[in-house]
Computed example of a mutant assay.
Amino acid sequence: MLSVCTFASSSSGNCLLVSCGNAHILVDAGISARRIAQSLKCLGLSLADLDGILITHEHRDHIAGLETLAKHCPAPVFAGEGTAEALLGCAPSVGPRLRPFIPGSGFEFSGVCVSSFPTPHDTPVSVGYRLESGGRSAAVATDLGFVPEAVLKAVSGADVLVLEANHDVETLKYGPYPYFLKQRILGNRGHLSNDASAAAACTAAGGGTRRIILAHLSRENNTPKMALDTVTQALFRAGIRAGEDLELSVAPQFEMGPRYILD
């Protein structure tokens, strides 16, 4: 059995849980340790049940709760080289359990095979993950300015894909953000637009992905409806019917989402 549950997904904080059989793996810790513990409790779990914590990069909306979490949770913390070095400075309590790896490499623990892949984002090191166990797989690809071929290859065909759909380009361009921030978000090391997310979703679905969770939506520059409509229409043009051929949803920004389970 594989399941995915988002605990929060926005520019204010990101955290999700992937469970593969009896292994429970947290991806990012961008909300408080208390909220993480409360979310786990809703699933009948505790911090002690975590087998590992995967960090994508060191921006605060992905690690805000990590320092406190590491003091109360014995699970190893995996991060790409570069990110691991940054974590030692901003979350030193992770030090004894920090497990650095080379971005793009894979590793295994608790019966789960983890593949990492570099993502183009404005930090020295940023990665996404694909987790596989028992013939099922889940992939997480957020915080990327565009989708390189290597990322498409890494996520395509995953049973569940958590995919960034950060902004609607026109809403961002004519919105209240200062010019420099708009340029950062729109750049190749920024965040993924709805249109770029839709193109990636079509490729992933063509490879066999059957559930996509749109994530990391901007509160100011996007809405769940805009993201869903853009991706749904792109899928339809590709001959894929959302709701029939593929399940498409949006991760709640500031609260726990539903638990998606694959037997």
Rank of each mutant, 00 (worst) to 15 (best):
T123Y: 12
S93M: 00
H216M: 06
S9A: 12
K153F: 00
C15H: 09
G239R: 04
T230Y: 01
P252G: 05
A215C: 14
V169S: 05
A165Y: 08
G134Q: 03
G13N: 05
L246Q: 04
P96G: 02
E247W: 11
G13L: 02
F117L: 09
S116A: 15
D263N: 15
S105I: 02
V169F: 00
S249G: 10
Y179T: 02
G44L: 02
R219T: 09
G128L: 05
F109H: 14
K71G: 10
D195E: 14
T68S: 14
V140R: 05
Y177F: 14
S32L: 05
R259G: 00
R219K: 13
H59P: 00
V18F: 09
P124A: 12
T119Q: 14
D143L: 14
I36M: 10
R189P: 01
D51P: 01
G95T: 11
V114F: 14
S39R: 01
A37N: 05
C20H: 09
P148M: 08
V140A: 08
M256T: 13
G104I: 08
N221P: 00
K225N: 10
S9I: 04
R211Y: 04
L98E: 01
H72N: 09
T209R: 07
T119A: 12
I185S: 04
D122I: 01
K71C: 10
R241V: 12
D143E: 13
S110G: 09
A141T: 03
P74D: 09
E164A: 12
A33Y: 07
D168H: 12
D159Q: 10
P74H: 08
P76C: 06
C113N: 13
P148A: 07
V94M: 06
E244W: 09
G44M: 03
Y260C: 09
L40T: 00
V4F: 15
A33D: 14
V4Q: 00
F146W: 15
Q233D: 11
E164V: 04
A215N: 13
L214F: 11
Q233G: 00
N22D: 15
L262N: 07
L26V: 11
S249W: 04
L131E: 03
G65Q: 01
E132F: 06
F146N: 11
E108D: 13
V125M: 15
G52I: 08
A200F: 02
K41I: 02
V77G: 10
L181M: 07
D51K: 04
L131A: 08
A23V: 07
T83G: 07
R60E: 09
F180P: 00
E58N: 08
I213Y: 06
T6E: 01
A70I: 04
G80D: 11
T142I: 15
D168L: 00
R211M: 11
A199W: 09
V18H: 04
C42K: 12
R99E: 14
I102K: 12
K225Q: 15
D229M: 12
S10R: 03
F117Y: 15
G190T: 05
A165W: 06
R136Q: 11
E67R: 10
